[in-house]
Structures are given as structure tokens and as C-alpha cells.
């Protein structure tokens, strides 16, 4: 073991530094260009409008670190928020019980997908693509129409504002999101489960040979992802105060590109949750700039997000190529 020199540290955190730097630069540039952009509230609004995306992206980050992929989370968010709406409105279930049921259902679906992928070796994108269609179908099975939520508890949570630093405020969703992110960071870096996830993503074969519980962990990662989708669905229900089968359309791609922009390579094995949070926030800046500008059209969001994703993937590949070159002479463990 060599002592961690500053250079090594920078190299280790290079992708995440790049992401945060890009966020700061974009925010400063937008603040200089648009009057009223550089305020605390605009930043808080990005958190408020994207809290459910971040929560779901946390689960997907684990999936991607373990070297797999998930395409079902957008549909899962729609389904779980629809389920929450149907339980409280149509069946008049207690809101807290509703939340518990929804999270349990999310965990169950996640576990089932994980088991199909792990034990039957069905390619992850096929299984989760089918999961996506299943969740959308279930939405419409509950109701074709949108269900609006009038439950007093949901409304109270939805409208509550927490004031910070004077006039600026955040919503309860932001608090939920922060709790999820902190819990996930603990899980990723301070538990055996987290280390196993990184090990599987690094090299599944070696993880197996080291005696790590590979199969169990792979299923658990999808369980965790299902729980995250369900929590995201509940916060989405707080945000929208309704459930609808066509809601959250295209979220899966926003989420995956956030994880990629956040510096987690799609080949797995490394990556940080903080990066994912900033990956989502960079997309938040793009949306806000387009809203502030007023003359740009919304489709530019898609094109720019697509190009940013590409840029980051190419960058990651370049880095890993350099790293491989550097480590051919001396055998060294993967530094992340």
C-alpha cells in the first residue's frame, strides 16, 4: 500500500470532481446570464422539483455499480404513486399504512426482478424492460383515468414548506431525499453489503471466488432499487397530488443519464452517490435555463442531456484507458 498522494486522490475522485465543477460552472454562468437565477430559492427549487428523481437515481446507482442496469424505474414511480392514490382515495386506507404497503410492493417487485435476473440469467435490460411494461400495465389496470389525491395527510405533507435562511424554503420531499441519500451513502461505504456491491461490479468472478454472497447481494440490490422506486413514487405522489398511468414518462432515461453524468461508469465497480445527486442537479440547471430563457424549446433539454451523457461516457472510457495503461507495469488493486 502506498500512501495516498494528492495526485492519486485527485485521480480517484476525478470524475466526481468533474461533475461538481460542471454543476458550479453551469450555475454561475446561468446566474450571470439570467437575472434572478443565482438565488438560493432557484437552487432549492431544483431540489424540490427533482427530489423523486434523486431518490430513484440512488437505487439505480447501486444497480449500475453492481454492473447491472434497470429500465423500469419510471414506470415503477408511476405505478407506486398510482397505487398510493388508489389506496387512499378509493379504498380509504390510512395514509401511513398506504405508504408501508406501497414500499412493501416496491420491494417485492424489485426482489422478483432481481431473482429472475440472478437465478435465471435473464439479461437485466430485458427483465427490467418487461418490468417497465408490467408496471405501466398495472397502472392502467388500477384506473385508466388519473386519480387525484384529496387525503388530508397527503395534502398537508405536499403543501408544507420548511423555511431556511430567511425567505427560501424547501419541501418535505427534499428532507426525505436527503435522508435517503445519507442512508445510501452509509450503506455503500460503511457496510459489508456496500463493499460486496462494489466488488461484484468490479469483477463478479473474483467476488465469487472471494466467498462473497454474490447472488444474494445481486437480488438485494434490486430489492433496494425497488424500495427506492417506491419511496420515489410516494414523494412523486406528494409532489403531484395525483396518480396517472402516463406520469413519469421517460424518467428512466433521465435517471440513467444522471447516474452516468454523476461519474458512475456503466461497466460498474465504482461510482459515488454524491455524483449522482449532482448529475440530477445538472439536468435541473438545463431545465431551469430553458425556463428562464423563454425562447429555447423544451426539446433542447433532451438533445443537451443526450450529448452530455455521451460526453461523460466517452470521458470515462478515456480515463479507464489511461488507467489501464498506467497499471500494466505494476499490479495494483482497483483504486475505487
Amino acid at each position: 500500500m502506498r500512501a495516498a498522494s494528492p495526485l492519486r486522490l485527485i485521480r480517484k475522485y476525478l470524475s466526481i470532481i468533474a461533475t461538481i465543477l460542471l454543476f458550479v460552472l453551469a450555475f454561475v454562468a446561468a446566474s450571470l446570464k439570467y437575472k434572478g437565477f443565482g438565488t438560493l430559492q432557484v437552487f432549492f427549487n431544483m431540489l424540490i422539483d427533482n427530489s423523486f428523481i434523486i431518490i430513484s437515481a440512488v437505487g439505480v446507482t447501486f444497480v449500475i455499480i453492481s454492473g447491472n442496469i434497470d429500465l423500469s424505474m419510471g414506470a415503477m414511480i408511476a405505478f407506486t404513486s398510482m397505487l398510493a392514490a388508489a389506496l387512499t382515495e378509493n379504498l380509504h386506507v390510512n395514509p401511513l399504512l398506504t405508504i408501508a404497503i406501497v414500499i412493501a410492493v416496491g420491494a417485492l417487485i424489485g426482489t422478483a426482478l432481481g431473482a429472475i435476473i440472478t437465478f435465471f440469467k435473464v439479461p437485466p435490460f430485458i427483465a427490467t424492460l418487461a418490468g417497465m411494461f408490467m408496471a405501466r400495465g398495472l397502472c392502467f389496470l388500477i384506473s385508466i383515468e388519473a386519480i387525484s389525491i384529496n387525503d388530508p395527510f397527503f395534502r398537508a405533507v405536499s403543501l408544507y414548506r420548511i423555511h431556511l435562511f430567511g425567505k427560501a424554503f424547501i419541501s418535505i420531499n427534499v428532507v426525505i431525499m436527503l435522508v435517503v441519500v445519507l442512508a445510501a451513502i452509509y450503506l455503500a461505504h460503511f457496510t459489508r453489503f456496500g463493499r460486496t456491491v462494489y466488488a461484484i461490479g468490479g469483477n463478479e468472478q473474483s467476488a465469487m471466488l472471494m466467498g462473497l454472497p454474490v447472488n444474494r447481494t445481486k437480488v438485494l440490490v434490486y430489492t433496494l432499487n425497488g424500495i427506492c422506486s417506491a419511496v420515489a413514487g410516494i414523494t412523486y405522489a406528494f409532489y403531484m397530488l395525483s396518480g396517472y398511468g402516463l406520469n413519469a414518462n421517460g424518467f428512466e432515461l433521465d435517471i440513467i443519464s444522471s447516474v452516468v453524468i454523476g461519474g458512475t461508469p456503466l461497466s460498474g465497480g465504482s461510482g459515488y452517490l454524491v455524483g449522482t445527486v449532482f448529475g440530477v442537479l445538472i439536468q435541473g440547471i438545463i431545465q431551469n435555463v430553458i425556463a428562464f430563457n423563454g425562447t429555447l424549446n423544451s426539446w433542447w433539454t433532451r438533445i443537451i442531456v443526450g450529448l452530455l451523457t455521451l460526453m461523460f461516457i466517452v470521458m470515462q472510457r478515456a480515463f479507464s484507458a489511461i488507467k489501464r495503461k498506467g497499471s500494466t507495469s505494476t499490479f495494483e488493486m482497483k483504486s475505487e
Partner: peptide, 21 residues
Amino acid sequence: QVIMLVKALVVFLVSLLQSEN
């Protein structure tokens, strides 16, 4: 819209049948 559910179940069935395990 429920056809999505049916399609999903068909995908699961087909991919399970293709799975050696």
C-alpha cells in the same frame, strides 16, 4: 393499455423459457 401487462408477462415467459437454468 392493459396490453402492456400482457406483453410484459409474455416477455417474462419467453425469456424464462430461453433460460437454461
